[in-house]
Design a binder for these strands. Structure first.
Lengths: 155, 155
DNA sequence: AATGAACAAAAAGGGTATTTTTTGTCTACT
DNA sequence: AGTAGACAAAAAATACCCTTTTTGTTCATT
């Protein structure tokens, strides 16, 4: 048995995808393992595994394979050029996009669209639009009590 | 003139939305400014501005207003209960979800879905599935040169 | 200057029928 | 074990028609 790469069985166990799906996706070019054993058996790389896992997440979220095809390409292109250990990354996958987050410091949309924007930036725009001297912005925030539940703060 | 809140003109300038859109959205409940001047003129809060900007981003991305309505509600619910200065947040908006990112440490989907997952977690799953003793995982990564372009690293 | 109402055009949603894609199952092969 | 091929069922995309939603424009009102 070869030591490198993941076998079909392993990929099936890890991702929950069926043999038929792997087979069809190989044939139609969604994920093609670069390695093959002497006997012609597929060996998936860890990057392949990551892509397949992402595809599985999208399927579970109700995204069709055809839409996945359109999006997954960018991830396939990105991974080989990524000089960060993959294990330091986190992914956000939806029907419309795949985000890559590094540690907790940077992130980048793989699609061309500009998805991420900061509220601080909006505030600057707003202040500029209001005139040179802006009023006390603090008053404009909805004054918070202490009942946060949607965001976990760690400080 | 009242000092607090943004006028229609200002909101139009900042968000790029039309007067007609603001008017219709007010009437149909998408974004209703709480404040009104004595003369009955609308004054939008900064939170309103943030919601409207998000809606604009989604429109630019080709999302229909009806889908925006379904999603924006969660943001409207969230903002008043958020005890973090809004300017410390960043947003990710797509047709399927709106993510809120805090500083660069935490983020939380406003929808119930679990969108984010770490590659490290996948690696653990993979290692477990492979057997108790895992092979040298480093070999399985696509060995990077130094040609990153999709992620901005700051170290 | 901002709002509201009325009309018409554009955009989007819902339903159905048809075509294409995807998957399961079975079979044979190495 | 793993792969490939053939057939049929399930799922998804496409096209079409029709209804609803959304937006621009114009006008009157405050």
């Amino acid at each position: 048995m070869n030591e490198t790469g993941y076998t079909c069985q392993q990929v099936m166990r890890i991702t929950g995808l069926s043999q038929r799906q792997l087979s069809y996706w190989r044939k139609t070019g969604l994920v093609i393992p670069k390695q093959r054993t002497a006997g012609g058996h597929a060996r998936y790389s860890f990057a392949d595994l990551l892509i397949l896992k992402t595809a599985r997440k999208l399927i579970d979220a109700g995204v069709s394979v055809q839409r996945i095809r359109r999006r997954i390409t960018s991830l396939t292109d990105f991974l080989p050029s990524c000089n960060i250990p993959l294990t330091e990354l986190s992914l956000v996958a939806t029907g419309d996009m795949i985000l890559v987050l590094h540690q907790e410091t940077t992130f980048e949309a793989l699609t061309g669209q500009e998805w991420v924007y900061s509220v601080a930036e909006l505030e600057r725009e707003a202040a500029t639009s209001r005139g040179i001297i802006e009023p006390k912005q603090e008053e404009l925030f909805t004054a918070p009590e202490n009942t946060h539940k949607n965001i976990a703060v760690n400080q």
